[in-house]
Amino acid sequence: MQNRKFVTVKTLLISGGSSGIGAACCEKFLQNNYRVYNLDINDNPSLQKYPAYRYLKTNICNNGEISLALEDIRNREAIINTVIVSAGKHLSGSIETTDEDALLDIVNLNLLGAWRLIKQILPFMKKKGGNIITIGSDQSTVGKPNSAAYGMTKAALAQLTKSIAIDYAKYNIRANCLGVGTIDTPLYRKAIENYSQKSGISLDQIEKEEASCQPLGRIGLPQEVAELAFALSLDNLAYVTGALIPIDGGYIAR
């Protein structure tokens, strides 16, 4: 089948779109008539029901794999309207308890993965503008215990996003970072399960304690983050760029 270039339907490119916040973003954009390209190391079968969904197996720690995925997309699309950088992972530990291999691993994904993907897509986006959203953290702003490496990557990601916003505004490219708080994702579930096993505290008690730390008294949902990401893609928010926007139940406002 011969490749065609489409111009009438908007497009989303997302990294880490197979689970958690990324999957919720895929669903939201697909439900609003976007074509969605998901760059992830695993697919999400529940997204395959959408005709406008395309999975491209990609490890964003690998420049070559990113290049192949973007070549595929460029052969199909005249423009990428929105890019969401969602791929990432958590790592618990202080500076003393985090070994250098673990540090380099999380930096390679959370920070350099974003750097690689955005750097390769910018020449394509510069032609017609676009919208870049990075999934940061409440730790882009504040510190938390036993989160030295993770917090470092998320703070750096927010700063990278601001720099992109300044450097590429002349090309009508916007860039914003979402300061995501505690959200009920597979990453969150894995983190509290690990903590429960190490501490002996029940999952139910941990969840209650986590909820009580949030001024709104509950854990957030991936769909709520997706709503904000989609809102930033709309033309009526086209003056918003270079922002670190909290979506954390009021956590950093305390």
Rank of each mutant, 00 (worst) to 15 (best):
E210T: 08
K190P: 00
L228D: 10
A226D: 02
L232W: 06
I219A: 03
S212H: 05
E227Y: 05
I201E: 15
G200F: 07
S233R: 06
L237W: 07
L187D: 09
F230T: 07
S196F: 03
E193M: 07
L187Q: 14
S196G: 09
P215F: 09
L216I: 15
E210A: 10
L232G: 12
P186G: 07
L221H: 10
E207M: 08
G217C: 02
L228A: 12
K208P: 06
F230Y: 15
Y195W: 03
Q223C: 01
K208F: 05
R189A: 03
Q197I: 08
R218K: 15
Q205W: 01
A229M: 13
E193A: 14
L228M: 15
K198Q: 12
L216A: 08
A238I: 12
P215D: 04
I201Q: 15
D204G: 04
I192W: 11
A229R: 12
Y188H: 15
I206V: 01
Y195C: 00
E207V: 04
E193Q: 12
P186R: 04
A238Y: 07
Y195S: 02
N236T: 08
Y195F: 11
E227M: 10
S196T: 03
E207D: 12
D204F: 05
F230S: 10
V225P: 04
P186E: 06
A231L: 15
L216S: 06
Q197W: 00
P222T: 08
L216C: 07
I206E: 10
A191G: 01
L203H: 14
G220V: 07
D235I: 09
D204R: 04
K198I: 08
Y195I: 00
F230E: 03
A229T: 08
Q223A: 14
R189Y: 00
C213D: 10
L187K: 07
L234I: 02
A229C: 13
E227A: 13
E193F: 01
I219T: 14
Q205I: 15
E209N: 14
S212M: 13
L216V: 15
N236M: 06
K190W: 00
L187A: 11
E209I: 05
A226H: 11
V225H: 04
S196D: 07
N236S: 07
E210W: 00
A211R: 02
P215S: 08
E210N: 05
S196I: 05
G217D: 06
N194V: 00
E207F: 00
E227T: 14
G217A: 04
L234Y: 00
S196C: 03
K190D: 09
A191C: 03
Y188M: 14
K208T: 12
R218W: 01
G220N: 10
R218E: 10
I219R: 04
E193I: 02
A238T: 13
S212P: 01
I219Q: 09
A191H: 11
E209F: 01
S199T: 15
L203N: 10
L234A: 03
L187E: 06
S202R: 03
E210I: 02
C213K: 14
S233Y: 03
V225K: 01
G200L: 04
K198D: 06
E207C: 08
L234M: 15
E207H: 03
I206W: 09
S212D: 14
L234R: 14
A191R: 15
G200V: 09
L228I: 13
S212I: 04
E224R: 08
A231C: 14
P215L: 09
R218Q: 13
S212F: 02
N236P: 01
Y188K: 11
N194Q: 07
A231D: 13
